[in-house]
Each structure stands twice: as structure tokens, then as C-alpha cells.
Nucleic acid binder design. Structure first.
Lengths: 362, 362
DNA sequence: AGAGTTTCGGAAAACGTTATCAGCCCCCGC
DNA sequence: GCGGGGGCTGATAACGTTTTCCGAAACTCT
């Protein structure tokens, strides 16, 4: 119907050259805009290209110009509820720069992560965005990659000074939570966090310990550590209960969800008797009942910063100091931390905060 | 440290050839295994390649062999809670075949979808995996793409007979739910679904209408339609209430979550007074309290089938009939549909079904 | 032992771009 | 009138693979 032969083959630069009556070099120039070209010729070329539906072969372009217009995104587990939103913003930011995103899910395995990174390098990605699977065990592969292409670490750290990095300011976030709890009259807070040296775990824990003192001199000591899971959140309630806390500061939303579940199971009034807070603002935090007060990571801004770092390559010749960007988070107050005076759970206002309309339009 | 010059350049086939004392052709052959080659030479080549840390340049390979080893994955919204798990399984299945995944998130916009598809084709993906954003408006771009590369539709339809497709058997899933409700003594069920012609919406609605008759001749008529969102789930409860149902069959888990929230807000006992069921088994279904009985999509199998379809290309010359694969889902019984006799909510057994340990190890 | 047949290795031609290097023409200034 | 800049343009050499196409051996078989 479009006049092409059965052996449907893509229009190439030569075809456009032939059709517009000039050389491949000229066509390349007008299409890439690398060097000035006569107005009339340019017009002819453009017309021919449009008419033939020409699309440059990215493989050839990549081979010749040693740039694929492609960025590798390596993450531990896409099913981690915090990541889909981040991935979404990252792909949008990168697509806006005309770069495509090669996705690799490592299943939390540093070995698989190393393989994926190597594969992406062989595919000649222009840059890498890595959320390391492990603070220590990811280091080697990341370091090796970082000296071959621009690399930005996201969300989690990976030892010191390996590469540029972008993450939320966990310390500021924890301060927001503690201030809020203090302002709404909570006095006996406990921290339910995650053990280990992973940056989010450590930073949030330390931020709590150094910030909780204003509430109660003993508060910094009431720290309970497990992992970043709903299960631990459930279990932590039983551990923490003998401390008679009036607020549970959880190191992320999953822990908070677990804690909330267990508290409700025990018939404890939240927030009347005890407040619960989370971190990250995953979708589930808004949908829990009561909605969970949490710290929203500025996902779009994190993505934008990462894209910006990749745009501006190492420039200087020598080993330039790595750029570390920390973005301020935002406190999202929901019912789980409403002031305790009204002993009853607030009804009828499920979530007045801007809840992304979570819609699954299948 | 590794002896390379500052102008760090990748080892190439020529380098390996020089180092092993044979020609590029031979090196290519032993590394690609396309043709038999002398055992001793092969060994020398392999040693040299390993020693130089040679990795084939995929751009060059793609240019020459017209295959990039890359698959485009186009989806409407990665933040849709059902998709992360699917994306995870897809990337794993494709990586196992040695293919990389280019991810494109369309933000539910068919226009953006068309652009992404065109871009992926320009990047010479070997195949496309598409979850169409819109039943009708995605059709054109998908059809155009389908005649250039192997294309598999997933999860949702896109008009008739465009391409191969893989999805869950919605009809079978709905039957599982209705059988379960009948077996546990529910008699007045209502369906809370989504309007429109999108395949999941339509198929689940029709499956309900044709299957609910065995419970109660009037049941097929008790159908309430909105969209696939938590908000609609909340609102639907109020609409449906005057029907005095003892079971709410929701067309997906988000609706079920919303319905459950509203019911709890109204102080209605679930499952004592009324059962609630969902569809898809998103993570939130397991974590709601009570856990939501739902239909689990066989995500890993769906991904495996899609990968399989892509592996086996259209083969025959002529326009071969499209393959449509429907996989049977699995009923996951949780507390929200426990038999009504015990008027009290079951305590202390939050979710004995195999709940993936949802962990956010930051 | 000679002809056919396999096996292995190299030279070289693609693949579709981009970048370099000349060439051409026209115009300017002496 | 003539040498020398500038704009534009066309050949052509890369880029790093894969893939013919060929020779040169080394076998096999009569």
C-alpha cells in the first residue's frame, strides 16, 4: 500500500541522499545540524526524509559517534514499593533529554548487579544510574563502572566517595517528624528502625538519636532495630510495648504499616493512644486506615537532579571531587499522628492530603 | 594499575586478534561460536580475550547483524501497583535470554505511547512488549509497530487480532471467586467494577454477569460500575449498600481496598457481615487488615509466556494467525471472605497465605 | 597415489552513520 | 586580472562486528 517491496527495509541515509539528489554527507549534516547547509538543499533533504519516513539507525550512530543515547538504570528490586514512583520520574526526566532507559532489576543480589552493570557497559550506555543493592558488596562493581562512564548513585550509599550521588536528606526528614510529634504533645517516643550500615537505616537512626532528646532525655535510647519490613513492624510493637510509648517513629512506611496493623489487632487507638509515623510516603501510607503520617521524598526533584548530574559530565580532566546532593523532604501529616486529645479515631476524613489518585485502569 | 594508558579505550576484536596471533575473523568465530575452530587456537583466543577483559561492542554487533539483543517494554504507568511485579518477572525472563530491556512509561497517554514506540523502533529493538494505554487509541501505533517487529500485547487488549497477546484468564478468575463465595455461604453478592471497554473491565464484568446466576438469579443484575480506583471503591459502598449484599466482588484489588476502608469506617464487620474480594493480588491486598481474598495473576508464568512468544518469531512467511494465550489464575483466600458464621473478625492470623516478604531494604 | 571432501584460517566486504579532507565556486581586494 | 578567503558540498575513511568467499592443508576413498 505504501509502495514498498515485500522485503520491507528501513529507509537509510543513502536513500534520502538519492531522493534529494545530494550526498550522504550533506543529508547527515542537515539532519544532525552539525554544520550549516544551503537553505534550499536543506529543505529538499528534509522533504525527502519525511517522505521516506526516514529514522536514523541508532546502532550505526552509536557505533560511529561512540554515544548510544542510552542510560542504564540498575536497581535492587523494582517491587520495593518506593521505587516505582522513582523509576517513573527518572524515565520521564531522561526521555526528556532524549535518552532511553535500559532497566535492570538485581533481585537484591550484588552478584547479579555486577553482571548487569557489566552487560550495560558492553551495551555502551552513556551513563549509569545505580541504586546499589548492598552498601559494601556493591562497591567493587560500582567503582569499576564509575571510571568508565558517568555514574550517579541514588537513594542509597555505597561506601565513601565513589561517585556523584543524589538522595533525600534523611536527617532533615527525621527532624520534621520529631518536631511534629513534639508540637502535637507526644512525649514518650520510640524509634522502630532497621539495623545495619545501609545509608537510609543508619542515617535515620542517627538522626533520631540526636534529635529525640528535646522530647525526652530518654527518648534517644528507645531504639528498636530490625529490618525495613512489614513483618518487623508487627513484631516491633510487641517488643516496644513495655516502654508505654505515645508515639512510634518508624524508619520507613512498611514498618509503620506493620506496626499499625498490630496495634489495631491489639485494639489500641491510633492516634488517640499512640501516634505512628513512617518515612518515604509510599502509596500504601496514604491508603492505610488511618492514613500514615510520613516524610515524602521529593521523587521528581531527585530524578531531575540525577538527570542533571548525568547531563553535566565530569568535564575537568583530573579526578574531580564527587558531587553529593541531598534534597529536603516534606512532612505529610495524616491521621495516624493527629493530636491525642480527641480519644476517638477521626472518622470521615480518610485522607485530606493530596493523595495521588491511584488508579489501575486495566 | 591495570596497565592501560590514560586514554582508556575498550579492548576490541583487533586487539584480541593481535594478542592471540590470529585474525579478527577467527576471534569472532570462537567468541560467537558460529563455526568450529581449532581447539588450540580457540584456547589462545579465549585466554587473550579474558586477559584483555574484552567485551564485544554491542553497537557494532547490532549494526552488522541487524539485531540489538534489546526488547522495548512499553507500559501505561509503572506506578500502577500491579505492574512492578510484572516488570520484574519480564526483565528476569528476558535477561535470561540475553536480551536487555528498554523501559518506557507512557503516563497513560496514548500520544506519548506512540512516540515511545517510534523511538524504540528507531533504536532497533528486536521486539516490543506493550501494555497498551488505551483499548482503542493505542491501536494505530501498536498496529504500525507490529508489522515491523515481533510484538506481544500484555495484560490488556487493543482491539482484535493485532498481535500475539498474553493475559490472565479473567473469566476463570471470576469463576473462582464466585465458587468460593457460594461455597462459604454467601447469597447476595454485588459486583463493583469498572465501566468501559478495556479488556479487564469488560471481561471481568461479563464473567460476573454470566457466572453469578448460580448464587442468586438476581445477582447478575447487581452490577455497579466506576473505575479501577480506591476512590471508586469507597464511593461504591454507599451506592451498593441499599442492596444489603453479603459479599462484594470487586473487579480489582484497589476497588476492594477502597470498599474495605469505607466499610470499616461505617463499622461494618468484614467478613462477618459482608465478604469483600479483589483481583490481581497486588501487595496491598495481603497487607490490608483484614487481608483481602483475591485472584492472583500468575505473573511469572505470564512473563515466561511473553518471553517465549518473542523467542519464537513469526516464522512462516504469510500472515500467520495471532497467538492469544490465557493463563489460569489462582484464588488466594484471606480473611476478608472468611465464612460469616463467626461474627467476629479472626484475630491473630494476619495472613497465613504465602505473603511475599515485602521488604524495603534501603 | 590422485581426486574428492572436509576443516581451519585469513582477507575483505558489508552494516549506516559521522567526521575529515579536499574541491568547487563566488566574491573581495590589490 | 589574479591570489586568496569563505561558504557549501561530495568523496571517503573510519567505527567494531559478522559474514561471505577463498585458499591451504589434512583426510578419505578408490
Amino acid at each position: 500500500m505504501d509502495g514498498r517491496e515485500p522485503g520491507v527495509t528501513e529507509a537509510t541515509l543513502r536513500d534520502v541522499a538519492r531522493a534529494s539528489g545530494c550526498s550522504v554527507a550533506t543529508v547527515s549534516r542537515v539532519l544532525a545540524g552539525t554544520r550549516p547547509v544551503g537553505a534550499e538543499t536543506a529543505e529538499r533533504v528534509r522533504a525527502a526524509a519525511a517522505q521516506l519516513g526516514y529514522r536514523p539507525n541508532q546502532a550505526a550512530r552509536a557505533l560511529r559517534s561512540r554515544a548510544t543515547g542510552t542510560v542504564g538504570l540498575v536497581l535492587p528490586q523494582i517491587t520495593n514499593p518506593f521505587y516505582p514512583a522513582l523509576v517513573r520520574e527518572l524515565t520521564h526526566a531522561l526521555h526528556a533529554d532524549g535518552r532511553a532507559v535500559l532497566l535492570a532489576d538485581c533481585d537484591d543480589d550484588p552478584g547479579a548487579e555486577a553482571e548487569h552493570i557489566a552487560d550495560l557497559l558492553a551495551r555502551r550506555v552513556d551513563a549509569l544510574l545505580v541504586i546499589p543493592a548492598h552498601e559494601r558488596r556493591s562497591r567493587k562493581a560500582v567503582a569499576a563502572a564509575a571510571e568508565r562512564v558517568p555514574l550517579v548513585l541514588m537513594d542509597r550509599g555505597c561506601g565513601a566517595g565513589l561517585a556523584d550521588s543524589v538522595a533525600v536528606d534523611n536527617t532533615a526528614g527525621m527532624a520534621l517528624v520529631l518536631d511534629h510529634l513534639a508540637a502535637t504533645g507526644r512525649r514518650r517516643v520510640c524509634f522502630v528502625g532497621a539495623a545495619g550500615t545501609a545509608s537510609a537505616a543508619a542515617e535515620r537512626r542517627i538522626a533520631y538519636e540526636s534529635g529525640a532528646g528535646t522530647l525526652d532525655p530518654d527518648a534517644p535510647g528507645r531504639v528498636f532495630l530490625g529490618d525495613f519490613s512489614v513483618e518487623w513492624g508487627r513484631a516491633a510493637v510487641d517488643e516496644v510495648w513495655e516502654q508505654r510509648p505515645d508515639a512510634l517513629v518508624c524508619a520507613n512506611d512498611l514498618i509503620a504499616v506493620g506496626a499499625l496493623q498490630r496495634l489495631q489487632q491489639l485494639g489500641v487507638d491510633v492516634p488517640g493512644r499512640i501516634a505512628v509515623t513512617g518515612f518515604d510516603d509510599i502509596p500504601m501510607a496514604a491508603l492505610a486506615a488511618p492514613g500514615i503520617t510520613t516524610v515524602r521524598q521529593p521523587v521528581a526533584e531527585l530524578a531531575a537532579e540525577a538527570a542533571r548530574l548525568l547531563r553535566r559530565p565530569p568535564e575537568g580532566g583530573g579526578p574531580r571531587p564527587h558531587r553529593t546532593i541531598r534534597l529536603a523532604p516534606e512532612l505529610v501529616v495524616r491521621e495516624s499522628s493527629a493530636p491525642p486529645q480527641g480519644g476517638r479515631r477521626p472518622q470521615g476524613t480518610p485522607d485530606n492530603n493530596r493523595t495521588a489518585k491511584l488508579e489501575e485502569a486495566q
